[in-house]
């Protein structure tokens, strides 16, 4: 008798027809995601004539690869400088944000810590209300942070949502472990550092990713607080290339040596801003579901 194949989870293996249907379905879904992405890559690499002939969007460059869009963005040094600035903001910002968020989350997760309930309430309230544009600006100004990168890093370094996620994870740690540590004479600090954090790598990775992506993508704070455009992060510099589909140059300036078409430039910009995140993502992704779900269920 032929034994039915069984999948890892104990589920019976579906029949051939069902598998084919599933495969086609999944391939289609993948195509929906992947094809536009290929289009972005292709358009950024296609020659100007090809882009305009194709009506702005090229699926596969057939006339060879043309790097003029990338050259035009990367020449002049503003974009490379902005890449460094963005790297700094993201790295330092994420580090600071993680330290603050984890410490706050830990403090709020310990029953009986000083002012636990009122503090938790304060954090929750900040989820409901937004300070608004001008008050935020005035606060930054009062702290003397205008025109400094800290103005972009500090205001978003504690996100209430992330604090809640981290706190929920900490609350879910088995009390027995912490109790035994306490019996062995560990201080709160040691319990946080040597037990809490190592047990919570998944949630720290996920929250770190949230912060990292947030810092990498943010431009509005920089727009308001940084007057010196040489301190602008990548996203804001790239924004000046694509402001609402404005055709750069032609009207504001006179005749110019041929510039690549705007669509190629936009697609190249997309690539430049997406690639760094794409490189980091796979390393953190394996923690993703675990980190978020654990926090969510045990909240």
């Amino acid at each position: 008798m032929k034994r039915q194949q069984v999948l890892a989870g104990g589920m019976p293996m579906p029949g051939l027809a069902e598998r084919i249907v599933k495969a086609i379905f999944l391939t289609l879904i993948c195509a929906v995601v992947v094809v536009p992405f290929i289009g972005v890559v292709s358009t950024s690499l296609a020659s100007p004539e090809e882009v305009i002939r194709a009506g702005g969007f090229v699926l596969f460059p057939t006339h060879g690869i043309d790097l003029s869009a990338y050259k035009s963005i990367l020449s002049g040094g503003t974009v490379t400088q902005a890449l460094l600035v963005s790297g700094f903001i993201t790295a330092v910002g994420t580090a600071i944000a993680l330290v603050l968020t984890c410490m706050l989350g830990w403090a709020l997760s310990r029953r009986g810590s000083v002012g636990n309930k009122p503090l938790l309430l304060l954090v929750l309230i900040s989820l409901l209300f937004n300070p608004g544009l001008i008050p935020s600006y005035l606060v930054i100004q009062q702290f003397g942070l205008l025109d400094s990168l800290w103005a972009v890093i500090l205001p978003t370094s504690v996100s209430a949502f992330n604090v809640i996620v981290v706190r929920a994870y900490f609350v879910g740690l088995p009390d027995a472990v912490l109790d035994s540590a306490r019996i062995d004479g560990a201080s709160e600090w040691k319990m946080f550092w040597y037990i809490g954090l190592p047990l919570s790598k998944a949630v720290v990775a996920v929250v770190g990713l949230f912060y990292g992506v947030g810092y990498w993508n943010s431009f509005f704070g920089a727009l308001l607080y940084l007057n010196d455009s040489s301190k602008w992060p990548l996203q804001l510099v790239l924004r000046t290339y694509v402001v609402n589909g404005v055709e750069i140059g032609a009207q504001d300036l006179g005749a110019t040596e041929a510039l690549p078409p705007q669509t190629s430039i936009q697609m190249a910009i997309l690539m430049i801003s997406v690639v760094p995140i794409l490189c980091v993502y796979p390393f953190i992704q394996r923690h993703f579901a675990k980190g978020v779900l654990t926090g969510a269920v045990k909240g």
Binding site: L133, L223, T240, V243
Partner: peptide, 18 residues
């Protein structure tokens, strides 16, 4: 101090307030 034209109203409002 340059601002992309579409964001200028917000930038200007904050600068006036400050």
């Amino acid at each position: 101090n340059l601002t992309p034209s579409v964001d200028y109203a917000q930038k200007f409002a904050t600068v006036v307030a400050g």
